[in-house]
Amino acid sequence: MIHRRLQAQLVSLLADYPAVALLGPRQVGKTTLAIEVSKNRDCIYLDLESAADRAKLSEPELYLNDHADKLVILDEVHRVPELFQPLRGLIDQGRRRGRRAGRFLLLGSASRELLQQSSETLAGRIAYLELAPFDTLEVNDDPQEKLWIRGGFPDSLLAADDKRSLIWRQNFIRTYLERDVPRLGPRIATETLRRFWVMLAHTQGGLLNAASLARGLDVTGKTIASYLDLMVDLLLVRRLSPWHRNVGKRLVKSPKIYVRDSGVLHGLLGLRDKEAVMSHPVIGSSWEGFVIENLVNVAPQGTEANFYRASGGAEIDLIVTLPGRRPWAIEIKRSLEPKLSKGFYFACEEIQPEAKYVVYPGEESFALSKDVTAVSLTSLAKTLRAA
Rank of each mutant, 00 (worst) to 15 (best):
L131F: 03
F104M: 05
S119Y: 08
D75T: 14
N65Y: 06
G89I: 09
D69L: 03
I126E: 12
P86S: 06
P86F: 04
S50I: 01
L71M: 04
L62Q: 14
V77F: 04
L106S: 02
P81I: 05
G151T: 11
S109V: 10
G108M: 09
V80H: 09
P81Y: 05
R99D: 03
E76W: 01
S58E: 14
G94Q: 14
L131H: 04
D92E: 11
Y128P: 00
E130S: 15
L106D: 01
Q117G: 10
Q116H: 11
I149F: 04
R54H: 00
H78S: 14
E61R: 15
D53S: 09
T136G: 01
L57G: 11
S109F: 07
S58C: 00
P81W: 05
F104H: 04
E82Y: 10
T121C: 06
A127D: 05
I149M: 08
E59Y: 05
R103P: 01
Q93R: 15
R99P: 02
L122H: 09
P81D: 02
D53C: 02
T121S: 12
R97N: 12
D155A: 11
L122M: 04
V72R: 08
D53N: 07
D155Q: 15
E76Y: 04
R88S: 01
H78V: 03
I126Y: 12
S118K: 13
L64H: 05
T121D: 07
F84H: 06
L64Y: 02
S119M: 12
S58K: 15
D53Y: 02
R88T: 00
V77R: 13
E61C: 00
V139S: 05
R125S: 02
A123T: 14
L62S: 12
E82Q: 09
F84L: 07
W148Q: 08
L114H: 06
L115V: 14
A123H: 09
D92H: 08
R96M: 07
V77M: 06
L114P: 09
R54M: 09
R54F: 01
A110I: 13
E61F: 02
G89T: 12
Y63W: 08
A123G: 08
D155H: 10
A127L: 11
R88G: 03
V77S: 14
A51R: 11
P60S: 06
A132Q: 15
A68G: 07
A132W: 10
F84C: 04
V72Y: 01
R150A: 10
L106W: 00
V77W: 02
I149G: 09
D92Q: 09
S50A: 06
G94H: 09
P60C: 01
E59G: 00
I149A: 10
D135Y: 06
L115E: 12
G151N: 08
L137W: 11
E61Y: 07
R88H: 10
L62G: 01
Y63G: 00
R125W: 06
S118M: 10
S50R: 05
R79A: 03
D75C: 06
L107W: 01
L105H: 13
V77P: 10
V80G: 00
